[in-house]
Structure formats: C-alpha cells, structure tokens
C-alpha cells in the first residue's frame, strides 16, 4: 500500500494479506480502479433488501438487462418480498394470477389488474 501505512500489528497483518493473498490470487495488477465485477449478471435483489434509489442503473452504472421499474417492482413483491405488498391474493381469489406471465420481462403486460 502506498497511501496507507500500517502502524499496529493488526494493520501489518491486513497489509500482508492484501499484498500476498488477495492480490496474488485475483491476478489483479496493483492500483486497478474498478472493483471487480461478479462473473454472473447483476440481478438486483428485492426492494427492501438493499437501499437503492431505484432500478434505473445497476451497481456499475449499466442499464442493459434491466426491466422497467413498475412491473419489476410488482413482480418482485409477488415473488421474493417478505413485506406484505399489494399483490392479488393467490390463495383465495386469484390463484392463476401469474399463469399468463411465464417470463416477467416479456409477459408483464399479461398480469391482470384485480379488483378484490
């Protein structure tokens, strides 16, 4: 490290780890400027699991592969959200609500509006 000087023993251990383990293993040259991106495509997680201003961009600023905010929000509430959200009651009234929506990105228009 050039701009941080390890002072105590723990700092020395961290520096040693970073110089000898992490950097060597990742094969990254020193001083790279972009944090390593994960190999798999970035999939934003449920709305309340991360604090994020919205789905307009992904974590590296990209816009590819994102669905529109509205239907993604609704569909994510239906699937992965632990918070009680305004989605149709699939247990009692609308068991087949998602039957016409095999892939949300493509079929989101088929999701019906339900009046309870």
């Amino acid at each position: 490290m050039k701009h941080l000087q390890p002072i105590n023993q723990k700092a020395g251990k961290i520096e040693h780890y970073l110089e000898h383990d992490v950097v060597a293993l990742s094969g990254q040259p020193r001083g790279y400027t972009v944090p390593q991106q994960p190999d798999s495509p970035h999939i934003p997680m449920g709305c309340s699991l991360v604090f994020s201003p919205g789905w307009e961009v992904d974590r590296s600023g990209g816009t590819a592969g994102l669905c529109q905010p509205v239907e993604r929000d609704l569909f994510d509430c239906h699937l992965g959200c632990f918070w009680p959200a305004h989605v149709p009651d699939q247990l009692n009234h609308s068991p087949d609500w998602t039957s016409k929506c095999a892939a949300a990105q493509k079929d989101w228009r088929s999701l019906d509006i339900i009046f309870p």
Partner: peptide, 23 residues
C-alpha cells in the same frame, strides 16, 4: 487523478470506504 483512484482502492481494501447501499 490516478493517485486518488489508487488511494480509493486502498481505502476500500481496508474497508475504510465501501460501496454505498451495499449492506
């Protein structure tokens, strides 16, 4: 600027700074 970026990287490695919004 490149020195600043390298410093940012070092500070991230020791967790003095991190990505906003990442738990």
């Amino acid at each position: 600027p490149d020195d600043v970026r390298q410093t940012v990287n070092e500070l991230m490695q020791v967790h003095a700074i991190g990505e906003a919004g990442v738990l």
